[in-house]
Design a protein around this nucleic acid. Structure first.
Length: 491
RNA sequence: CGGGGUAUAGCGCAGUUGGUAGCGCGCCACGUUCGGGACGUGGAGGUCGGAAGUUCGAAUCUUCUUGCCCCGACCA
């Protein structure tokens, strides 16, 4: 903890600070395999809560889960030209299926066991899924198909960071097939809304919804919708995407159906996904120098109770008193941990649960026992108060809701204050150094976008849905601009 | 794949002109403690990334090699 405090949050050491927090809060660690991550039980518990919530939301919107293979024949990937272009550079390839004893000791790849066709470890599953959907779809009666899969994927990234960019990551990917363009487009938008609702309501992370520019969109998509969040160091993070794929994959995999008029046509598709990157987003949205700050909606432990005692006799009394509170909290569906382990001192426990982001801490000691009181601390503001045990359960229930709301509002305030409108390129260059989102006019060309990226490291995060869309002139070229777009440096 | 670092105990580090291995944290045992990361005493743990060379002697010098980190290109 001392070391954490020594690192400045918004300075150059932010990435060190982040890494240290992830490791110390027991969320994840680097594995022995290059670029891969071990998600530790506490980190995974948070991910599980995210998963469960998202999965419920997918079910509510009519989706079902399925599972498709990890390995994809190399030839599948090349069927959609832009898609292979986008992913070819970061694919892990399986070339052999057997090892043999080496004459130099150990084992070696058996050259006799070379695969006729190499297999790709999925970087995403559009190709294998569309190859499968081809067999599932003959008639309009087979549509729509609304499948999701929870899976791992692998992208051989040059540089990796825990949760934000790892060679292997966990995600969900939805893949849907529709009879009409309108229905598919509506699906892509609907799922983006599911993501933004999840981010804001459960992660307490405000996001900006919008459309990606031509050069930033998904390889193989017609349109990519995105939610963009702002981290505390002023960099943007793409937190979820939903793609309208048009008929690109249907054509590449020859997926046609007979409509009501007995006419053959290609199906319309979407795909959408969020990954364990959301864990990174969660960490970087709310944490402070004492460690993680978790929104109650996603905290594996919402309330921790720590006893302070002298001697076993007093502990037994506290145990008894606390037991009633624990069961009453549980009855309200609040996840609570009573930590009466005697091998750690109270001060250690306080610091540790703060590091782990537990939203509410209750402390019961000898003094409280006498006075029928209990100490309540909220993680988001670190405020402590001692209050009577009467009505404590209702109070904590309300407090959890307040914390959820408070950290969202705090993040939203920070985000809103960091959006600036800028009209000249000079000003833009100056402002981008300060971090945050910059709302500026752009002539709509990939050349100008590339120039800005090269000179300032800023990219177009999205063309936002709910922001001012009046025309103007490009800040770089002076050419006409249809509307302002959102720029930022990003992860 | 370019440019720069680094490699010594589980983790973080020190180790001078070459002289035979140290510190902090953590870990184990016992005792005293317990209202914000306790303290005392004792203890376990290292062929100094690997290979070769120079030398009476190498963590230290030379050459080769490998891993990792940071900055670029790539990216959910």
């Amino acid at each position: 903890m001392a070391e954490l405090k020594n690192l400045t949050k918004r300075g150059e050491n932010y990435s060190q600070w982040y890494n240290e927090l992830v490791v110390k809060a027991d969320l994840a660690e680097q594995s022995a395999v290059r670029g891969c991550m071990v998600i530790k039980p506490y980190g995974y518990a948070i991910w599980e809560k995210m998963q469960r919530q998202l999965d419920d939301m997918f079910k509510e919107t009519g989706h079902v889960n399925a599972y498709f293979p990890l390995l994809i024949p190399k030839s599948f990937l090349s069927k959609e030209a832009e898609h292979v272009e986008g992913f070819a550079k970061e694919c892990a390839v399986v070339t052999h299926y057997r090892l043999k004893n080496s004459e130099f000791g150990g084992v070696t790849v058996d050259p006799a066991a070379r695969l006729e066709e190499e297999l790709i470890i999925r970087p995403t599953s559009e190709t294998i899924i569309w190859n499968t959907y081809k067999n599932w779809i003959q008639s309009y009666r087979d549509l729509p198909i609304l499948c999701n899969q929870w899976a791992n994927v692998m992208r051989w990234e040059m540089r990796t960071r825990l949760f934000l960019r790892t060679a292997e990551f966990l995600w969900q990917e939805g893949h849907t097939a529709h009879a009409t363009k309108e229905e598919a487009e509506a699906e892509a938008v609907k799922m983006l809304n599911v993501y933004s609702t999840f981010a804001e309501k459960y992660m307490a992370m405000p996001v900006i919804k919008g459309v990606k520019s031509e050069s930033e969109k998904f390889a193989g998509a017609v349109n990519t919708y995105t939610i963009e969040a702002l981290m505390q160091d002023g960099k943007a993070l793409q937190s979820g995407t939903s793609h309208f794929l048009g008929q690109n994959f249907a054509k590449a995999f020859d997926v046609q159906f007979l409509d009501k008029e007995n006419k053959l046509s290609y199906v319309w598709a979407t795909s959408w996904g969020v990954s364990t990157r959301l864990m990174g987003a969660l960490i970087m949205s709310h944490s402070d120098d004492n460690g993680l700050v978790l929104p109650p909606a996603l905290a594996p432990i919402q309330v921790v109770i720590v006893p302070i005692y002298r001697g076993e006799e007093q502990l037994a009394q506290i145990d008894e008193k606390v037991a009633g509170i624990v069961s009453a909290l549980k009855a309200k569906g609040i996840s609570v941990k009573y930590d009466n382990a005697d091998n750690k001192r109270p001060g250690f426990k306080f610091a540790d649960y703060e590091l782990k982001g537990v939203p509410v801490r209750l402390v019961m000691g000898g003094r409280d026992l006498e006075n029928n009181t209990i100490e309540v601390m909220r993680r988001d503001t670190l405020e402590k108060e001692t209050r009577t045990c009467d009505g404590i359960v209702e109070y904590v229930e309300q407090l959890l809701a307040d914390i959820q709301n408070n950290i969202f509002e705090k993040a939203r305030k920070f985000r809103d204050e960091s959006i600036r409108e800028v009209d000249t390129y000079e000003e833009f260059k100056k402002e981008i150094e300060k971090g945050g989102f910059i709302y500026a006019h752009w002539d709509g060309t990939a050349e100008t976008e590339e120039l800005i990226k090269e000179e300032t490291k800023a990219t177009i995060r999205c063309i936002p849905e709910d922001m001012d869309a009046t025309p103007g002139v490009c800040m770089v070229t002076g050419k006409p601009s249809a509307r302002r777009v959102l720029f930022a440096r990003s992860y």
